[in-house]
Each structure stands twice: as structure tokens, then as C-alpha cells.
Amino acid sequence: MLTISNSVTIADWEIDISQIRAQGSGGQNVNKVASAVHLRFDIQSSTLPPIYKERLMALSDQRISKEGVVIIKAQSYRTLELNKEDALARLKALIQSAGKQQKMRRPTKPTKGSQRRRVDHKTRKGKTKSLRGKVSIS
């Protein structure tokens, strides 16, 4: 079982992890490639809450196909167990990123009020700066 958050968990039967064997004659990285793992997770048939499914499908990620299947390849470690853990951690991070609500972006154009305040501040600052060091005789 993979726990994403307090309310979201994924059962083991929903995640398909297969070991990929190296093809070809080998070389220096035979052990590394021989322990490669492909993790397959179907978003649509999973028990995730609907909001997670919608956000995952809306993500622009190469690992998510149009049909809603997540495929994660892990082969950076020499042992199969470490590669499985790495693939599960990446799936968890992907689902967690979909669970977070996107922050509202600041409007690209400043408001009229903020523009006015900025100009007022600049001119006031410029006036005091130009009068610095000058003595007024009255």
C-alpha cells in the first residue's frame, strides 16, 4: 500500500511493477540495466478521489499517456528493490503534485492605484534627493 496523504492511499493491486531485463550482449552496465523497473499505474481505474484523477489527467507530463496510464521507468540503482522504491517514490511525488491546489498567479499588469503610488513615491524620493546638501536661506 502506498500512502499519498492522510486520506489518499493506493492499494498494491493498482500498481503494476515489472522487471525489465537487458537485451543484447551487455557491457559495463549489465547489472544496472538488468535491474530496471517499469511501473504502470492506470489513473481512470484507480481508487483515487475524482479531483486527483482530474488534476492528474490535466498535467502536462510525459509519463502520463492520453489514456490515463502513468509509466515510470527506474534504472538508476543496481538492485531491483532500490529501483522499485525509486519508482514508487516518483509516483507518490507525481500524485502529491496533482493534489496541491495551484496558486493564483498575480495579474501581469499592475493596477492603476499601484502605478500611481509608485510614481508618487519616485517623484517624492527624487525631490528630497535633489535638495540634499543644499541650504535654504530665509
Rank of each mutant, 00 (worst) to 15 (best):
S76C: 10
K103D: 08
K109T: 12
P107A: 09
P110W: 06
A93H: 04
L91W: 00
S97M: 07
S45Q: 09
T108G: 12
K109M: 09
A93Q: 06
T47S: 12
I64K: 15
V69Q: 04
I72R: 11
T128W: 10
R105A: 09
Q115E: 09
I72S: 10
A93F: 00
Q102D: 14
Q44K: 15
K127V: 15
A98D: 00
L91T: 03
K84Y: 03
K127N: 14
L94G: 02
A58T: 10
L91Q: 08
L82N: 11
M104Q: 08
R116V: 04
V70P: 15
E54L: 13
S114G: 06
V70T: 08
R118Y: 07
V70D: 07
S46W: 01
M104Y: 03
P50V: 09
T128A: 15
K100C: 03
K66T: 05
A89L: 11
Q96K: 09
R55E: 00
T123I: 11
N83V: 01
D120P: 03
K129F: 02
T79P: 07
I95P: 05
Q115I: 14
R63Q: 13
Q102T: 13
N83R: 02
D86R: 13
I95Q: 03
K84P: 04
K92C: 09
S76L: 09
Q96H: 01
D86M: 06
V70C: 06
S65Y: 02
S114E: 13
A74P: 14
L59A: 01
R106N: 13
S97P: 02
K127M: 12
